[in-house]
């Protein structure tokens, strides 16, 4: 399983000019997006892009396919929402609490799921996330089918009014950038190198003396926490948390974003999220056809486009890391 297409995702870390260009585009986009796209849409985009990047840390850089990442996204959303709305916490504290909750949940689910590998890991995470979904449906504070509504945006640091769209936007952009940098740093740290060696060849990583289980678990927790951060931020932006956030289809969508953008690439998940979220907006009038289109993209990606958009681009430009 060592040749390039047979393992899930792959890259190395040589920086180059193209990377700088992509960084520049990303920062420029973050700064200027409200000038040319609808602010709420831009914020939704950034939340999902962060979610996809967090997911990619696990699938693309560690080789673990979690089919239950909606649990962390949703848990972050519900907990932040509840903390802000019912306990009256300020927005930032609520978001951090949601993130922490997702991290704890990630610890529990990861600790359980890591006992099995590959395809079983995917099924186990899916099943465990379903427990969280039913909690979302049945627990007294979640609002059942209606979800948690009317979460106030409040004031950041006590004086920045998040009800101002631009203030809200730049807050979300900052959250995204911080999350993105954390992931970037993780990937390029010695820790990230070990993750990649686990992805390439787990038995070899084991024989080199790495505590593979521990590394996988830490990666899982980081990924879960950042997914929770994305969900929590989303709940403040939209002022609600709903069962959709916890649903398996959300887990599927984040996989698609990552796959479409390019597994194991740095900017791929952002591009993937941009594509999928835009598509959902464009097709939202078509009802269930959205699902058909999403499914069809999945099929095409898996069959003929396994490198994803950024992965293909990197191949065309003959660079190894984007």
């Amino acid at each position: 399983m060592a040749t390039s297409e047979q393992t899930i995702g792959r890259s190395d870390t040589r920086g180059n000019g193209i990377n700088l260009v992509l960084w520049a585009i990303l920062l420029l986009f973050l700064l200027t997006a409200p000038a040319y796209i609808y602010t709420v849409f831009a914020m939704q985009l950034l939340c999902f892009a962060l979610f996809a990047c967090a997911f990619n840390l696990l699938l693309g850089f560690t080789g673990l396919l979690s089919f239950g990442h909606a649990a962390f996204f949703g848990a972050g959303a519900y907990l932040a929402g509840h903390a802000i709305k019912v306990w009256g916490l300020p927005p930032l504290a609520g978001i951090l609490l949601g993130t922490a909750a997702a991290a704890v949940l990630g610890y529990v689910i990861g600790w359980l799921a890591i006992r099995r590998q590959g395809i079983y890991f995917a099924m186990i995470t899916l099943a465990l996330a379903q427990i969280i979904y039913f909690f979302g449906l049945q627990l007294p504070f979640t609002g059942g089918e209606n979800g948690l509504q009317g979460i106030p945006r409040g004031h950041l640091f006590g004086f920045l009014d998040l009800n101002q769209p631009l203030v809200m936007y730049y807050f979300v952009a900052a959250v995204f950038l911080i999350g993105f940098l954390i992931i970037y740093r993780t990937i390029h740290s010695p820790f990230g190198q070990v993750l990649k060696s686990i992805r390439e060849n787990e038995p070899r990583a084991l024989s080199l003396g790495y505590n593979v289980t521990r590394f996988k678990l830490i990666a899982f927790i980081i990924s879960a926490a950042l997914s929770g951060l994305a969900g929590a931020t989303k709940s403040v932006v939209f002022q609600f948390a709903s069962l959709t956030d916890l649903h398996w289809q959300t887990s599927g969508e984040v996989i698609l974003m990552t796959l479409l953008g390019g597994l194991g690439t740095i900017f791929g998940p952002v591009v993937g999220a941009l594509t999928v979220v835009s598509l959902q907006h464009e097709l939202s009038s078509l009802g269930s056809w959205v699902q058909v289109v999403i499914g069809a993209i999945f099929i095409v990606c898996v069959l003929v486009f396994r490198r994803g958009i950024i992965g293909e681009l990197a191949r065309l430009l003959k660079t190894s890391s984007m």
Partner: peptide, 17 residues
């Protein structure tokens, strides 16, 4: 084998949709 799972997931979405 993960790709087989993802492919059939896509098929499931198409059928359900």
């Amino acid at each position: 084998p993960i790709y087989g799972l993802l492919l059939t997931f896509g098929i499931a979405l198409v059928l359900q949709g």
